[in-house]
Structure formats: structure tokens, C-alpha cells
């Protein structure tokens, strides 16, 4: 057996510090799933074309299949498992469940994380902006219309929550 070069990487996953000794060119997707047991992040194509593998890297939505684990070093990773806080769903999660924006559900984690990142940048996106932001995320059940409804609802829910804080 060859001695594949392993390096130690430190990063935070869902708010928890992690130290992983592994090959630096391993996809973050596989480290999350296989080393950390976080299987909510999905493989869909391995070439960044379907974004089922989307995670937040320092708040930015990235395709974890194309992100080597070395690129996550020193950064904060959020996966679908880390989006809810204290058992309370993130508004985007709540909206997807409430609006039934789920057929097989395999694309849903990626859809939700892409939406969460969008709403951080743009709290009140137009339909056009939503569609543009999610165009990279494939749903083969083609449940796009319901997903759009869910994202609109998440926008409203966040707006209402912000208003409540004023």
C-alpha cells in the first residue's frame, strides 16, 4: 500500500471544532459524509452541475463535491444538519416543509442551503432573483414551482420575524 499523504485540517462544522487527518484533495463532501457521518449533504454528479452537495463555507454556498477538504481549513462549514438552532427549524426549512416543496427530497438540502445563503445577501429577492440563484440546483422530480412558493414563504417569514424584533 502506498503512503498517501495525509495532513491535519482544522475547521468548524455546524459550530463544532473538528480536526481531520486526511488527504487534502479529498472532496469536502466525502469527509462530511464518511468521516463525520453528516449524510444530509448529497452526492449528485461530482462536477458541480446539480448542487445537491451544497454546504455553506463561511456563509457562502459552495459545491462540496468540488471543494477539496484543504479549502475548508480554518473555515466554518454549515451543513443541512446544522441549520436548525436548538431544535427550531431555520425559516427556509420551515417554509419547505410547510409548503410541501418536497417530492423525493434528495435535492432539498442543497436547495435549502442555497436559499439560506441567498436570503443572507438579499432579504427580499424578486422571483427572478430566486430563480437565478437556484438555477444551478437540479430537481429531477421537477418540483421547481413548489420550491419557488416555499422560498417566497421563507422570505415572508424572515420579514415577519425582523418586523417582530423592531
Amino acid at each position: 500500500m502506498s503512503a498517501a499523504l495525509k495532513t491535519t485540517f482544522r475547521f468548524a462544522v455546524n459550530g463544532r471544532a473538528r480536526i481531520i487527518k486526511t488527504e487534502g484533495d479529498r472532496p469536502l463532501l466525502e469527509v462530511l459524509r464518511e468521516d463525520l457521518g453528516l449524510t444530509g449533504t448529497k452526492y449528485g454528479c461530482g462536477e458541480g452541475q446539480c448542487r445537491a452537495c451544497t454546504v455553506l463555507l463561511d456563509g457562502k454556498a459552495v459545491t462540496s463535491c468540488l471543494t477539496p477538504v484543504s479549502a475548508a481549513a480554518g473555515k466554518k462549514v454549515v451543513t443541512i444538519e446544522g441549520l436548525a438552532t436548538d431544535g427550531k427549524l431555520h425559516p427556509v426549512q420551515e417554509a419547505f416543509a410547510a409548503e410541501g416543496a418536497i417530492q423525493c427530497g434528495y435535492c432539498v438540502p442543497g436547495m435549502i442551503l442555497t436559499t439560506a445563503a441567498l436570503l443572507e445577501k438579499n432579504a427580499r429577492p424578486t422571483d427572478r432573483q430566486i430563480v437565478d440563484a437556484l438555477n444551478g440546483n437540479l430537481c429531477r422530480c421537477s418540483g421547481y414551482p413548489r420550491i419557488l412558493v416555499a422560498v417566497r414563504r421563507a422570505v415572508e417569514m424572515r420579514g415577519a420575524a425582523d418586523a417582530g424584533q423592531d
Binding site: I80, Q93, E94, F96, A97
Partner: peptide, 21 residues
């Protein structure tokens, strides 16, 4: 009525065949 197990899907808790460990 929407999917009764929606919460497992949106939290990533549902294990698809490729998620079984």
C-alpha cells in the same frame, strides 16, 4: 396533504439508500 415526513427531509435526517452507514 404534503409529505408526512417533511421534517426528516428538510433537516437532512432522512437516510436515503446512499446514506446508510
Amino acid at each position: 396533504r404534503y409529505r408526512i415526513d417533511g421534517r426528516e427531509i428538510v433537516t437532512g435526517a432522512h437516510q436515503f439508500p446512499s446514506d446508510i452507514q
